[in-house]
Design a protein around this nucleic acid. Sequence first.
RNA 1: GGCCGCGUGGUGGAAUGGUAGACACAGCAGACUUAAAAUCUGCUUCGCUUUUUGCGAGUGCCGGUUCGAGUCCGGCCGCGGCCA
Length: 874
Amino acid sequence: MASPDTTDTARYNAKTAEPKWQETWDRQGCFRTREESEAPGKDKYYVLEMFPYPSGRIHMGHVRNYTMGDVIARFKRARGFNVLHPMGWDAFGMPAENAAMENKVHPADWTYKNIAAMRGQLQAMGLAIDWEREFATCDPSYYRHEQAMFLDMVEAGLITRKKSYVNWDPVDMTVLANEQVIDGKGWRSGAPVERRELTQWFFKITDKADDLLKGLEGLERWPDKVRIMQTNWIGRSEGARVFFPVEGLSKDYSLEVFTTRPDTLFGASFCALSPGHPLTRELAEKDAKLAAFVRECEQLGTSEEAIETAEKKGYDTGLRARHPFIEGHSVPVFIANFVLMDYGTGAIFGCPAHDQRDMDFARKYALPVLPVVAPKKLQGAELETFLSELGEANEAFDGDGVAVNSDFLNGLEVTEAKRAAIEKLEALKLGEGTVNYRLRDWGISRQRYWGCPIPIIHCPSCGSVPVPRADLPVELPRDVSFEKPGNPLDHHATWKHVACPKCGGKAERETDTFDTFVDSSWYFARFCSPKAETPTDIAAANYWLPVDQYIGGVEHAVLHLLYARFFTRAMKETGHVGLDEPFTGLFTQGMVTHETYKGPDGRWVAPDELFWKDGKPFLDEAARTPVKVGAIEKMSKSKRNTIDPTAIIDQYGADTARWFMLSDSPPERDVQWTEEGVEGAWRFTQRFWRIVTGDPASLAEPGAPMPALDEVAEALHRTAHQILAALTAHIEALQFNKAVARIYELANAISAFKPQDEAAGKWVKREAVDMLVQMAAPMMPHLAEESWQALGHETILAETPWPIADESLLVEDSVTLPVQVNGKRRDEVTVPRDADKAAVEQAALGLEKVRNALDGKTPKKVIVVPGRIVNVVV
RNA sequence: GGCCGCGUGGUGGAAUGGUAGACACAGCAGACUUAAAAUCUGCUUCGCUUUUUGCGAGUGCCGGUUCGAGUCCGGCCGCGGCCA
């Protein structure tokens, strides 16, 4: 085939056209944001794609994400909205420090260099972005406001400092996220990870758990999937706190446990404490064996999964806990590795018959298994059998049923029994009904350099003292070394030693920095007034927020989106914004995938290293070494199945890449990158250009008055307006693949158009071609501008209003209805649109094929759905 | 194991309960060309029928609701995601 970068003048040359139009848009300030006062009578529209981490190069996922956002931005602008469409950089984080350690480059230099490279790549995509609002979260001019808000939030009681377990890498001397722990070892050092207790800063997100849960109900333009994931993550569960007085201690002590199943209290056969429980600590001080057991537990990771899959282990303290309901009965107290200090009260009671974990534990330590719930339908002998089998079983029964062996609860169904048990506990003052959440407070301390410093000074006499506002920002020191393991801020010679702002005595800075999720929890608000002297300009924030359409990967369904929702509430409480929910519309796009290839040595082979012969890939041109085609997977460096967007843009142009990313696959689903697909997209850009410019003499002058239309001209006229209406609805609904199909349909209709009357033909073809170009503009903006100009228009398409479909052309005068006999299609009948049912029925029954199908029988019933279908029932 | 989503041609995918397969990719045939590429035209769910006309089957499987089911309901099978 011809090379895409040919200079043939009959071809559309993306290589020259694209930079030209990018420069024109830039020079004319087409995408500069208009403040409220500059846009009277316009509604605002804020479209935002999740901002990228500056890794160094954009990838196809970015291309897909930013193309979708750009289509919306351009479309909404053409539809008369005042649009905010900004871009920035999620610029703090570990990869910069890794690069510093590996390549001896300063994290700041590495980051800003990457930003410059990626900005250039994004600009080559021709995005309708207001670059004047760009910022990076590692700019002190950004993070100073984050520090100020942190202090506001400390004052507002939204933040707490407490101890918590972390994954500790003893070699790198750093805290690891759960996903950095692989098989219990640090991902970089390979050293066994320890659970360690550190004092850290926390946002009190659990205080807002109910509010965050309720808020989800109002987010109607969010995918249900994401709302369900957040609901599960918050994990609200109703249950009870129960007190078990402990015997065998020198003091009076009641163990507080949380349970979602107070109805199974009569089946309790032990209590278990978390290794981190205060009572455990106390006991461990006098019990070396217990202390050793606790240490062993701390070798385990902190993730629920790690704890869940580990072998259940316990340590019998010898203490007994008195049963709240059964006089004179007590159960043993264990320390158990599967009890989480962070969930509930850090202590449970075990009812082995009705909880699998408790069952496993009971069998291991030979504890009794007493069934206290049975399926309702079981009676007499069947019930006896069920209960005795469960008593011997290794499988717990956690289904619904009625209480048995449970004194005053007997016969009550689970829900009823829970309520009755709670009432009794409250009457006995041995417990109460309570709500527990799976959600934990958001720990934001990171023992790392490349993050926003926490603006606190620790003074031996005054405690944790906020850095005075006048001293903000607390800037990261530039002169740091990554030679030593651990946090460079912690062993910096001078930075951390300061005078206490309160007493003036010797004090030390907090050397932890913020979790980068903090940075991304408010950037959308900063975009409203990126240069303001305060974190937000409240008027600008009130105007632009909420984000009307937010677009990003589903991998952020829980953490980022939940934190941002919390942070917005916290900003509202501290007076920085005026709303609770930052994103009214959310769209989660699918991944970009590609085939994978494996060479004979089992190593992954990149697509551009292949030689194709007879549709099969080889490692060499002579086709001697075959390559195995593997699964279609998300593009990733490790599988070597990535395609570099810049290479594609160089070869085919940005419009081709954009068009391909929008074609075929529904945007929420994964899209497979294929060579054929991108070739097809490129060929269409050329065909588009030929349709528009191939025969200028066949088009009327722009703005020419409409002549009388003959039948064929009228048909194209209608088609164009119908397609316009459909495409407009598709883009509104973010159904880009369908919008693409409509463009093809119109292109096909124009190609197939055979005018009869010359004047009418010229006029409707001009209209159809103009519309085609305008409709394609959000998706292929450069090609559309070039076409628009070639069509003789004086305006810039980026500033031209969206065309309006003529409603009267959307309905046809006559309709063709399928005619079924007994639900089977036999023929079709064309009738006037407003024909009454009797007339349609008569026309349908008169059809020869229908009569044949009836075979002389009399119709029992004829169903006529106007404008839809006729069904003759025999 | 729980929750959620998805199963439609060779492929990606269309289809307010109303003509299943729009649109595209790939493939095949033809036109143009010395030839190829590009481009243009046509065909392309499967089976039966000599081609047409036509007939039959068909949206993972089984059943149900309905005049009518890819779509709604119940049960199964398979795949994917999240949580465990």
